[in-house]
Structures are given as C-alpha cells and as structure tokens.
Design a protein around this nucleic acid. Structure first.
Lengths: 144, 144
DNA sequence: GGTCATTTTGTTACAGTATCACAAATATTC
DNA sequence: GAATATTTGTGATACTGTAACAAAATGACC
C-alpha cells in the first residue's frame, strides 16, 4: 500500500510526512484523478488545514520531491514549429537555462507508445514528449 | 523558409494568414525559444496590435491549429504516484473525459529518448511523456 | 460599387493558477 | 527548557487563460 510505503520511506530519509502532507497524499490517492492544486486545497481546508494556496502547493511540492506524486503538465508556452508537416509528433528538448527549444523527431517512439496505449485500451489523441534539461551550450557553461 | 511555407499552405487551405497571425509567427521564429502568451502579447502590442490577452491567445491558437507552432506543456495538475520507486519515468495516460490518470512504464522509451538526446548533445533532467485521449470506459461510452 | 453574411480584431471583465514575504506554531537538538 | 530549524498559516499579488460582446475588415453576391 502506497501510504505505508511513504511512511517508511520518509522515516528512512529523515524527512517528515506531517499531517497536511499525509492528508494531501490521501486526497490524491482517493480521487484517482489528476487534481488541480486548488481542488486539493479545498479538501484540505474542509479538513481544517489552511485555506491559502501555498498550503496545497507546498504539500504537493513535497510529495513530488519525494516521488509520491507526479506533476501532470499542461499548456503554458508556445514555440514555432520548424518542420510543419501535418501530424508530426515532435519531441521537445527544452533548455531550462536559456529556454531554447529544439524539436526532434518522435517517430522512433511512436510505435512503442501505440503498443503501450493499446495494452491499456487507451485511445490517444494527443501525444506530448518533453525533455527538460540543459542544451549543449548551457551545459558546457555550467561545467566551466 | 517557414514563413513562405506558411503563406502557401494557408492560401491552399483557404484560411487567412492575417497580419497579427503572421507577425505572431515571426515573433516565435525570431526568439527561437518557448514564449509565454503574455510575452508574445507584449511584442504584438508594441507593434500596434491589441493589448489584451485574447489577441495573443487567438493568434497562437490559429498557428497551433495550422501546425505552424506548438504548445509546450507546463505544470497544472497533480496525481499520486502508484509505483514510487525512485527515478521511474512514467507515461501518463490521461482521459480527457473522466480525468482519470493511469501510469504506464516508460522504460521501453527510455533508451530511444536517451539516444535522441545524445545526438543533440542535450542533457535531459526530467522526462515528460503524456498521452491525452480517452480511457477504455469513456471511449466505449462515446461509441454507444 | 453597394449590401449582406462571415470572419477577424479589439475591449472589458473576470476566472483560474502560482508565488512572495512574513508571522505564528511546531518539532529537534543540545 | 532554551535555542535553532522546520513547517504551517496568512495576506497580498503576479501570472495565465477565457467569456462575452462590439467594432472593423473581408468575401460573396447582385
């Protein structure tokens, strides 16, 4: 069970699975859905915890750091498409330092993703593959 | 050249690459980065176009529809991790109808992604793979 | 060219998402 | 139990995105 494992792991790591944090994990587990931070916040507030956004954001951040939860990504930024063939599914290489975005071709991944979706009887409509990290130049600078 | 191709394609499709839309594409092309909608808006406003968010959002939406730009995804929702081993890189199967999130294992993709990153001399730190679509139940309901 | 329907642009107003800065409370260490 | 560090809570505010509607531009038709 996930909660039990979380308790053990936090004890082992010397970090604290405090009541808010624990309750936040429970909320995510109970819903089985992707939840917005404000949705989590409402439930925390209903249980007597703080009512302000940072309460939820901090607990969620902790869970993500510890690997107990994931941050599901959604829309926020735009980049021109450099190879505008119809229906291409690019991989984005996003540099977190200079914010340059490179596109690479995802066709090698496509087959694997289709298989995976088929095994779960899932019908994919939009595929998102992003690598966040450092581009060649910035990682050279970081090393210098 | 991307702009020229966009002109031809829009003419062929019978849609209009109006001045704002064209300028928006130029702005994205000039920056070579992922730009937020408000950043684009500032530049549009400086060029004498509208100053309100919808101006940028609409132009960007058009470009994405036509395949001239991509929407880069960012943080918005959270889900509990069901297999909290350290360093696992899950694929998310997100149902756009019921919002359930399933995790599948991405290890099959990992190799391909590493290769791809290596070829671009890119150092990945965080990998995001998401499939947005319909889960088995919702797609059955949609068919009914 | 003038009229009509359609599309596009612009604005106001507002909803949703996220962070900063600081105070109060709680644990941990010695 | 006093000192320190961590965590929680609050108010204020910034950033991101959308709804609704009016004005302007475009295209089709006569």
């Amino acid at each position: 069970m996930v909660l039990r494992r979380a308790e053990e792991q936090t004890r082992a790591e010397g970090v604290r699975l405090t009541p808010v944090r624990r309750r936040t994990l429970e909320i995510l587990l109970e819903s089985h859905r992707a939840m917005g931070a404000y949705e989590v916040l409402e439930k925390l507030a209903a249980d007597g915890y703080g009512k302000q956004p940072p309460v939820a954001y901090r607990a969620l951040e902790f869970l993500v750091e510890q690997g107990f939860a994931h941050r599901i990504q959604r829309l926020n930024a735009y980049a021109a498409c450099l190879s505008p063939e119809r229906n291409h599914a690019p991989v984005f290489l996003i540099c977190r330092s200079c914010e340059q975005v490179a596109e690479a071709d995802a066709s090698a991944l496509r087959g694997a993703l289709q298989d995976l979706a088929a095994r779960s009887e899932f019908t994919p409509e939009r595929i998102t593959v992003e690598l966040l990290g450092l581009c060649a130049r910035c990682s050279a600078e970081a090393a210098a």
